[in-house]
Structures are given as structure tokens and as C-alpha cells.
């Protein structure tokens, strides 16, 4: 499902090149669950961005569902995202001017698909059936993240990227979010890629990458 080879990333900071990722290579199978862990500044988020095609690497390639997304231009990658990828962020990243249901509808609308019924079902599934017309500011953090999850799953993505999805939530709410993700992973067969600090969550993953200073310092896979 996801494969990367020799992935490196360099940013220019203060006029000097700064290497944040060095030579990352790994493979993740269909329906898999990968956790990327490591201390702050180890390059976890940068790696996630590259894997999801949000940015271009300095060197190396990423194949997503057999397509080399590093060879695509920005708009082609956008079409791939619209078709196959779901996102969950630490800071939820809901569009503040849209209601909960409209936020969930956006990816479907982008594809020109009927969206209202499916968005409603998804929000009911994450327990927000009575909050459809609330704006993000009117929802708690946990509720916002559940809307974000519903949005991520609205297009039945082949792969879901999550950047510290529980980072801004308390343990109990975070637990609910992870459970929802795992449930969707099981029922829909969605591949999960998760960046986290939380070792308890990382332990749930079937595959773990440990990053430090932009390099893979540990890799482990649990047989399913």
C-alpha cells in the first residue's frame, strides 16, 4: 500500500540547509497499521507530510497504492488525496466557517458525490448525530476530533494519516478516538499511519518506526 525508498528532506533555515530526514526506507502493507514514534524534532511530522504527498522530498520516492506520488505535480497529488487519503491532525483542522456536517461533506463534494446522507451517518457513528449543525467553535476538542475522523472516513480512504490525533485530548477522549480509528481500520480495511508520542497507542500498532534526528533508529513489526 505504502512504500518509501531513500527519503530525505532538507529545509533552508536561517540561510543554511537543515537536513530533517535522512534516507528513510520502509514498506507498509494494505490494511496495515503503522505508528511513527520519536522525540520532538525527530522528523515524524515531516515524514508524515511526505508520505501523504503534502510536500516533495529532497531525494527518494514514495509509492502510494503503487503510484509514485513523488513524481507527480501538486495538482495530481491533490487528486490522489481526494481519491484515496484521509487525514486527522493534532489540532483537528476543521474549517471554522463550516458546520460539522459541512466539514464532513467537503471531501465528498470535492469528488462531486452526494454527501449529505453519508456525512450524517458518519457523524452518527462517531456519536455526534445531534451536533450536525454546530460550528467547530461550538464543539469540545474531543467532538471536533470526532468530526475530523468522520471527515477523514467520508470518502472510504485506502489510507488514513493521523498526526498526533490524541495530542490535544485527555486520555479518556483520546482513547475513544483511537478505538474509533481501529474500528474503521477493521471494518473498512483502511490502512493507518499514525504519528504519536504515546507509547500505549504505539503498542497497538502492528508496525512501528522509531525516529531520532531524522533517521530510523528502530523498526519493529508485530505479526497479525
Amino acid at each position: 500500500m505504502l512504500r518509501c525508498e531513500g527519503l530525505s528532506q532538507t529545509y533552508v533555515s536561517g540561510g543554511r540547509p537543515l537536513t530533517v530526514l535522512k534516507d528513510i526506507t520502509f514498506t507498509l502493507d494494505d490494511g496495515g497499521f503503522l505508528a511513527i514514534v520519536g522525540p520532538s524534532g525527530s522528523g515524524k511530522t515531516t515524514l508524515l507530510g511526505l508520505l501523504a504527498g503534502l510536500d516533495r522530498p529532497a531525494t527518494g520516492h514514495v509509492w502510494l497504492d503503487a503510484a509514485d506520488i513523488t513524481a507527480m505535480d501538486e495538482d495530481e497529488r491533490a487528486r490522489i488525496r481526494a481519491a484515496k487519503i484521509g487525514f486527522v491532525f493534532q489540532s483537528f483542522q476543521l474549517i471554522p466557517t463550516l458546520t460539522a456536517i459541512e466539514n464532513v461533506q467537503v471531501p465528498l463534494e470535492l469528488r462531486g458525490e452526494p454527501s449529505e446522507q453519508r456525512a450524517k451517518e458518519l457523524l452518527e457513528r462517531v456519536g455526534l448525530g445531534d451536533r450536525l449543525d454546530h460550528y467547530p467553535a461550538q464543539l469540545s476538542g474531543g467532538e471536533q476530533q470526532r468530526v475530523a475522523l468522520a471527515r477523514a472516513f467520508s470518502i472510504r480512504p485506502k489510507i488514513l494519516f493521523a498526526d498526533e490525533p490524541t495530542g490535544n485530548l485527555d486520555a479518556k477522549t483520546g482513547g475513544t478516538i483511537i478505538e474509533l480509528m481501529l474500528e474503521l481500520n477493521r471494518t473498512e480495511g483502511t490502512t493507518l499511519v499514525l504519528v504519536t508520542h504515546d507509547h500505549d497507542i504505539a503498542r497497538l500498532a502492528r508496525q512501528t518506526l522509531r525516529l531520532s534526528d531524522g533517521r530510523i533508529v528502530g523498526e519493529q513489526a508485530v505479526a497479525s
Partner: peptide, 16 residues
Amino acid sequence: LDTIAILRCLGSEARQ
């Protein structure tokens, strides 16, 4: 900018 970035993330094209 945030909204635009999110929408880009969700797969809309810049042109759109």
C-alpha cells in the same frame, strides 16, 4: 490560509 491548506490537504486543486 488555514482553510485553504486544509482544503488542499483534502484534495482540492489550487485552481479550484
